[in-house]
Structures are given as C-alpha cells and as structure tokens.
Write a protein that binds this DNA or RNA. Structure first.
Lengths: 149, 149
DNA sequence: ACCAATTTGTTAACAAAGCAATCAAATAGG
DNA sequence: CCTATTTGATTGCTTTGTTAACAAATTGGT
C-alpha cells in the first residue's frame, strides 16, 4: 500500500501555462510594432475592441479586452488625454460612461492594420493556415464552455 | 478604384487576444484556489517549473515560467524568505545561482495538486478530453514554429 | 597570459497591472 | 416611499513589468 501523493501534469501539458507560452511566442513581433507608437499591448486591445463594437460602457470593454475595471479606468484616462477616445455618461443610466473612438483613434488603428495583418499572415505561412483556424476554433469553444453551467 | 483601407480581423479571430481570453476562462478557478494560500499566479508557475525540472539556474526558470529576470529575482527573494526554496551559487560557474525547492515548497505543491487536478478534470469533462489534447498539441507546435528561422 | 566581448544575475527607478475597499447611481422589496 | 441590495466606476496599496545600468564570472581570440 504505497502512500499516493497526487502529481501535477507537466507544465507543457498545463493549459494555462501552455496558453501563456504560446502567447509569448506570438506576441513578440506585435510588441515590436506597437513599441514604435508607444502603445502598450493593453491599449492596443482596447482600441481594437472599440473599433469592433463601437460605443460601449467600460464593463463591456474590460470583459472583451481581459482587463480589470480599475486598470481600464486608468488606461482610458490616459487614452482620453491623448485624444484617442472620449467618454460621456449614458443618458438613461448615469452610472455608466460610454466610451467611443475619436478620428485620431481610428487613424491609429489604420496606421498599424497593414503591418499587423502582415505579421499574422507570416505566422500562418510558417505554422499552417489550417492549424491557425483549427486553433482559433478550439479557443472559442473553450471559452464558450467556461461560461456554461 | 476604391481607396483600400486595410481592415483588422475581429478580436475573436486574433490569435493573441483569443489565447488571452481562453486563458482567462481557465484561470478563474485556479486563481481562487491560489488566493487561499496567498500565492500569486507567477509564484505558482515558478513552483511548478522547479518541481518539474529540479535544481536549475534562474534564466531557465524565467524562460519556462514566462517571467523577466528582474521580476523573477524579486519573486525568488520573497519565496526564499518564506522558506519555499533555496539559492546556491553553481560550483563550476559561479555566475549562476542554482535554485532548488525545499521540503516546504514541495509540500505547498502537494497541498494543491489534488484540487488543481480536479479543476483540470472538470474542464476536460465539459470541454472534451480529446479537444484538450488537440489544443495542447497545437499550442506546442505553435511555440515550436516560433523558434524557427 | 591577456584583454575585449559575452553571459548571469542583481539593483534601481518608474510605469502599469492586480486586488480590496469605497463611492455614487439605480433598482428591488416591503 | 424608503432602505437594502445591486451595479458601474474610481481611488489606495502591493506586486509585476520594463528599461537601463551595474558587478562579477566566463569565454574566445590573439
């Protein structure tokens, strides 16, 4: 009767660690790109979310961009001061503040869109376009299965 | 001939963002678990890496745990003070300092191993064991293709 | 054997992120 | 109504991330 000490799987087979490592691999070139504009990873995510969904309240941005509300508050203040977006309180619910991109914000995205796409295309060539698609599908499903129950 | 303004793919189809969102989904329950011991995500990764590879130098830990060396230095100092690990300078190369878990460090891991495995098992039941395997394989390949060239 | 270049880790300084507590506005229930 | 709870956002404190500078040890060429 041996004493059963439970064992953890290897870090390469740990989903959170594997996701993090994979992400670090992919982020390298993108970080370089953003560094040129003095834009952080987080700000870039906020820009993309706003560009995608249009004017929204902060809680929705935080959820979509994987940021906590307190962090987002500070990021938005900085970006508002830089003229990339504006905040206005919602008419029907004055707790909410609605965030919206300015023309300068949209221009900032446009300025990087081409290079960003090129980076992604290069990755798809090296890794395989089919695999990227398959991976994105699995990630979507994983996220969806997390909200269940 | 229309002016072609390049467009970014949706955030759900952006690999870095999808990886991050998926990771947030998975990390939720694990964060709760670690909070009970007052251990940060980063410290937990360090513990697991050390448990997996045994005594190693810090650069290797930083690489495996996705941490920058300065951050790791602070984290290791704190963990050493808490008695979870020890540092000693390497015999053959005295620049290196070799880090090793103590019994207390291993005990800390053992204390969480069962719950950690349960969390992962539950995820596999909901998401599908085969999909988890497939996903981990793809993530490994992605990471490998990043080091090419 | 020597000296320049590289590697390994630490420290400092500052921006940024996470977490807990707080505050303000809105909603729900008696 | 009016108080109790919920929701949305901000403020304070601690831990990380980031860049640069530094010390110490090693490597490699001459």
């Amino acid at each position: 009767m041996s004493e059963e000490r439970p064992t953890l799987r290897t870090t390469a087979r740990s989903l959170p660690i594997a996701l993090l490592r994979a992400r670090e691999t992919v982020m390298g070139p993108i970080r370089e790109m953003l560094a040129k504009s003095g834009i952080s990873e987080q700000k870039w995510r906020v820009l993309r979310v706003l560009d995608e969904v249009g004017p929204v309240e902060q809680t929705a941005i935080a959820d979509a961009a994987c940021l906590l509300l307190p962090s987002l508050t500070r990021i938005l203040s900085a970006m508002e001061k830089d003229g990339y977006l504006v905040r206005r309180t919602d008419d029907t619910d004055r707790r909410k503040s609605i965030v919206e991109l300015t023309e300068a914000g949209r221009a900032l995205i446009a300025r990087h869109a081409e290079e960003s796409n090129a980076i992604m295309t290069r990755l798809e060539r090296r890794f395989g376009e089919g695999k990227v698609t398959k991976l994105l599908d699995l990630l979507d499903e994983l996220r969806a299965s997390g909200s269940e129950r």
